[in-house]
Design a protein around this nucleic acid. Sequence first.
DNA 1: TAATTAAGGTACATGTTGTACCTTAATTAG
DNA 2: CTAATTAAGGTACAACATGTACCTTAATTA
Lengths: 202, 202
Amino acid sequence: MNEMNDASKNVRRRGDALIESIYNATIELIKKVGYTNLTFQQIAHAAKTSRTVLYRRWNTKFDLIHEIMEYKTKNALGGELIDKIEDTGSLRGDLLQLLTLYQSIYTEGGLEIMNAILFEIGQDSEKLSKIETNARNKNILVMRKLLGFAKNRGEKIKEVSDATLTLPFDLIRVENLLRRETMDAKRLELLVDEILLPVFLA
Amino acid sequence: MNEMNDASKNVRRRGDALIESIYNATIELIKKVGYTNLTFQQIAHAAKTSRTVLYRRWNTKFDLIHEIMEYKTKNALGGELIDKIEDTGSLRGDLLQLLTLYQSIYTEGGLEIMNAILFEIGQDSEKLSKIETNARNKNILVMRKLLGFAKNRGEKIKEVSDATLTLPFDLIRVENLLRRETMDAKRLELLVDEILLPVFLA
DNA sequence: TAATTAAGGTACATGTTGTACCTTAATTAG
DNA sequence: CTAATTAAGGTACAACATGTACCTTAATTA
């Protein structure tokens, strides 16, 4: 009867099964209470495990969140962004493809998580600025590849600084993090037509 | 001797003197420990007042921070942004002027504060999205005024969506909040020449 | 000078943290 | 298949932060 519950308590999950359960509980919680109000105590309770287990693995809630982001990003893209970029036949198509892919990280990966990451960047801890710099450098390479397609096709591309090369990514971040609107295909097209093409196409 | 300290404890500041002391203590603290680690307890101690005084005035640390931001913004600009915008004789000059003024809000107003604001936006509380929407609408009006100058001078301006009109502000925000680089005049010029002029000038 | 206003101080229940230490289930090795 | 190892679950504790209640007392005002 009520002994069933007590009996089931003795089952101990381990490894991936446990971890994923913690990930999911964390994501649900962060949606409910927000990142600031997120506590290890609540996570442990929601994931039906103990704080001890959490502290053993992650020193701070950011460490946990960051791990979740990487896990989610992999799932959303199925690999590195630069490998997913293909020549669509036009700069417009390529840029639209890029925005769509990059947007999917935010859509699938969970806005709440990205928000937390962004916030921690603002706290300018050492490791965070490294994460940021790495991401930026990767993104610049993606854009070089993309603009390389255009040059090979004979499209006239402006020479711009590295800082400007990250514009497509910055726009997606602004849209997702600073505004809170739905990012449909129409919105992405507008970004390409009104901003990105004038900037990159001579 | 040591009674001097005890005697000085009996002096009670009130009103603006007290408030400004709290503002300053908060700004110093937030620079030291960051927004997440900021506590009313620490603020009270740093401002040499008591938690009671703080709780009476602000329900959350965000309420306090938001008030500080408004106070600082007023000081930085000395009025509303739209009133500060003047016709410099060219779109390039006008845009540079706009970026410089808007940047000063971040420089003078305190990056830490803006960061906190941004973060709370991510928590999508009711009042916060209102603050955001208001700011966006104001910024759109500023850009309309600025592009109006250009049209009157006979410069050819593209017709763009409201979403694109906020680009100058979004760029400053990205630079300040997502990156952590010094925003000198050269950087602002690059934003104007490589991004804003191609977007707005036909 | 008396009444009012607002700052300072104390106390308390509640919740979170980080750590230490122990028990016990699940896995692995001999 | 049993014993050793690994890792999860549980309890306890000191430290700190919160939000509230209630009281005292300095500063302002009427």
